[in-house]
């Protein structure tokens, strides 16, 4: 029983980070109908920036974290302006390839500067594990979970009540109608990419604190794809629920199925889930299906 609970709790924590990164995907998809396959690289670069600020320039963690957020927002906006803006109304494959190209470019850039070695953060959170009965949780996990929940609530409120959030929802709903009531669609795209990049940076810093930073961190961009599909590409609630679901399923697989079926299944199981979901319910648990007209 303790083992099962431990697995579930680890799954919830990992899942919360998945939910956060998935939020970045969903934000961009809702606003512009594009899937940002370079999201993993935003995570990676955010993590490296914060690490460099903390470890090399000796800036206190909290300020370094804030600076990283500012930097990543700028990065996201620049990317939107330079790469994605010319491709508005381009066919799907162009947008997919543009973000793939972007991911290669950003990854190459990050490797040129920071290399391939795993680098670890200086300890930011206390390291003595917290015991709750049989279950042991490291404080990093707990803090990650808390930060992610706060972020998700903040974004939920922003979307629901602020003028900006309203504008973003309007653009997601109908670009033409939104621009006819005076919303600048271009600015909304710009801000959306900034937000998505910011969210990725938070995910990157948290992941970096848990596992250290290296080149493989960017693969979270692909691991999170099944989460987004499972939840529905245009649903924020879906991203959050699916994030936790996939996190838990992945850890249960690692705990119970891998000893029987062999290693590596943990990384593949989200893709098996996504294949099934696509066959049965292509728009995910919470997504909206569209009507196609000729």
């Amino acid at each position: 029983m303790g083992f099962l609970l431990q697995m579930i709790i680890t799954g919830v924590v990992v899942g919360s980070i998945y939910a956060l990164v998935a939020l970045g995907f969903v934000l961009i998809y809702r606003a512009s109908g594009a899937l940002n396959l370079a999201n993993g690289e935003f995570v990676l670069i955010g993590s490296y920036i914060c690490l460099t600020l903390v470890a090399v320039y000796q800036i206190p963690f909290i300020f370094a974290f804030l600076l990283t957020l500012v930097f990543n927002v700028l990065l996201g906006m620049i990317v939107e302006r330079v790469v994605l803006r010319p491709l508005i109304n381009a066919p799907t494959i162009s947008v997919i390839m543009a973000t793939i190209g972007l991911s290669s470019l950003l990854a190459g850039f990050a490797h040129m500067i920071w290399g391939y070695q795993t680098q670890s953060y200086p300890p930011v959170f206390p390291s003595t594990p917290i015991r709750m009965g049989e279950i042991i949780i490291s404080p990093v996990y707990l803090w990650s979970f808390i930060i992610v929940i706060i972020m998700l609530i903040l974004f939920g409120l922003l979307f629901k009540y602020s003028k900006l959030g309203l504008a973003m929802r309007a653009v997601a709903d109908d670009q033409m109608a939104a621009s006819s009531v005076g919303i600048s669609v271009k600015n909304v795209y710009l801000i959306t990419w900034g937000f998505a990049s910011l969210v990725a940076a938070v995910g990157g810093v948290l992941l970096g604190n848990i596992n250290g930073v290296d080149a493989t961190m960017a693969t979270i961009g692909l691991t999170v794809l099944p989460v987004v599909i499972l939840g529905g590409l245009d649903s924020i609630l879906g991203a959050i629920v699916a994030g936790f679901l996939v996190g838990i399923i992945q850890n249960l697989t690692a705990g119970y199925l891998e000893p029987i079926l062999g290693g590596g299944l943990k990384e593949v199981i989200p893709f098996i889930i996504v294949t099934l979901i696509l066959m049965i319910k292509p728009h995910g648990l919470f997504g909206k299906g569209g009507i196609e007209r000729v």
Binding site: I100, L105, L106
Partner: peptide, 11 residues
């Protein structure tokens, strides 16, 4: 990393 970078840039 340079090859990766240029590959992305070319696309």
């Amino acid at each position: 990393s340079f090859q990766e970078f240029v590959f992305g840039l070319v696309i």
